[in-house]
Design a binder for these strands. Structure first.
Lengths: 255, 255
DNA sequence: CGCGGAATTGAAAATACTCAAAATTAGTGG
DNA sequence: CCACTAATTTTGAGTATTTTCAATTCCGCG
């Protein structure tokens, strides 16, 4: 063979990849360093740990593991889910690039849920103890961190409203509109994207069965609301979908 | 009349009541100042704003109002709820003494929900801007604040699991067990307490109708699980109720 | 090409909802 | 303090939505 005999040395890019820098990251407008001045961002860079790659279905952390790091998604997608004593599990969120994972672990010093990669993905490790030290020195970082935690609280409140008050059709519309706007914020098409999660995951998240999700997709397709091919979805009538999400329209006319 | 003619001067206690002090508050073991040393607690005392009394059904804040203060419940009970564009509302939590209100407003500088007193109640106003200043000087306070926010995130995740995965009976059992343990933490009876909220509020919170709550109460009563008189409830079989909440027992035997 | 997981579709069943009416409780004013 | 009214709660009957169970179908992958 003509390839080198020293693979470790032969891959300097991997070594570089172990160290993340926020300044060079395309997500820094959405992520933890949002709005920081260059000097402050550099200080944040100094504490950021290694990057970590995960393959599809690999677990980033598990419930009850001791808490050391927050994680910022660099690319790829994750799901977080809780399992209770009876074995029921509930997906509590899907996270994409620029979003923060692990905040629910702060209160108990242990992770409160599992986080699993939905596809090959990469995260930045953020040692929380060092982040706390930095809070005293970079007030803007602290303020933004509070906003992120608060945003997570409001996000979950929105899910509570969805689960507590909405019918299946509306839940699914809300789900699609939410993905759409998050992709838009990242510069991707708001009307054409891949569903990174299985139908089963969607159903679990929305408090519905996989069969219900399947039926909803079929109905949405039939009424010309969306086009679906495997996990690729095209929103053909975003306005009508938004109206459904808001509760001011329905897919199937009322009886 | 023999009472003084100068009521303002004659009621020095009211003047004192305008100024709250954590050190003198019976809730300081559960509330924001938890675990602070005396000196740090004194500093927190200095920024705490006035106390505010609310009568039953009075609103503490409303959605979209500008955010200035967090509130710590001194006594009484509150509910927080969200209303969406279509007018659907969802109660996102019931708060009691020692619990913090308003954290969801940090991210948007506006309140994200309404907070209403369920009975005559009192809160401490905590000016958030001043609290932020204090974070830099009292690291223990900052750490505890993060724990409180994180705890709110995990609480909401638990509600998501409840709304997404549990049947009516289990939801209601979880609700009662949760109230029970919170009262226990405050030194009250874990088996005998008042439901401060209406059946309608309970139903809204649990994603059920008022009729369902009423039927559940009747069923729980009939099987000897609880005793109910108006809003006074006695948990007759806490162990069985906990088993139901955990999903390992059922009120009515399976068919 | 065939295996296996994922997704779709159909039919029957269950859970909780809606609507309606009655009973109870709380609030108000005399 | 009582009576009256309004609000809340309970109960019943019928219904709707979603689930469950079962049978295919589709698709990726070896």
């Amino acid at each position: 063979m003509s390839s080198p005999d020293f693979p470790v040395i032969a891959q300097p890019l991997n070594v570089q990849a172990l160290k993340a820098t926020c300044s060079a990251c395309s997500m820094h407008q959405l992520c933890l360093p949002m709005g920081l001045e260059d000097a402050d961002m550099a200080r944040l860079d100094q504490i950021i740990g290694r990057r970590r790659r995960l393959v599809r279905d690999e677990r980033l952390y598990a419930m009850d593991e001791p808490f050391h790091n927050l994680y910022a998604v660099r690319f790829g997608h994750f799901k977080t889910y809780q399992v209770n004593a009876a074995g029921d599990s509930q997906i509590t969120g899907f996270q994409m690039a620029g979003e923060l994972l692990g905040m629910d672990a702060i209160s108990g010093d242990r992770h409160h849920c599992d986080a699993v990669a939905l596809e090959d993905s990469e995260v930045c490790e953020i040692p929380f103890a060092r982040l706390e030290e930095l809070f005293g020195q970079v007030p803007a970082l602290l303020r933004h961190f509070h906003r992120i935690m608060s945003q997570e609280i409001t996000r979950e409140q929105n899910v509570m409203l969805l689960l507590g008050n909405m019918r299946a059709e509306q839940r699914f519309a809300v789900f699609l509109v939410n993905l759409s706007s998050r992709y838009a914020a990242r510069g991707y098409s708001p009307t054409r994207f891949q569903l990174r999660m299985s139908r089963e995951d969607i159903g679990n998240y929305l408090g519905l069965t996989i069969e219900s999700i399947s039926r909803l997709l079929s109905r949405f397709k039939k009424t010309g609301l969306v086009e679906v091919d495997k996990r690729e979805i095209v929103l053909l009538e975003p306005a009508r979908l938004k109206a459904m999400a808001a509760g001011t329209a329905q897919c199937s006319p009322m009886a």
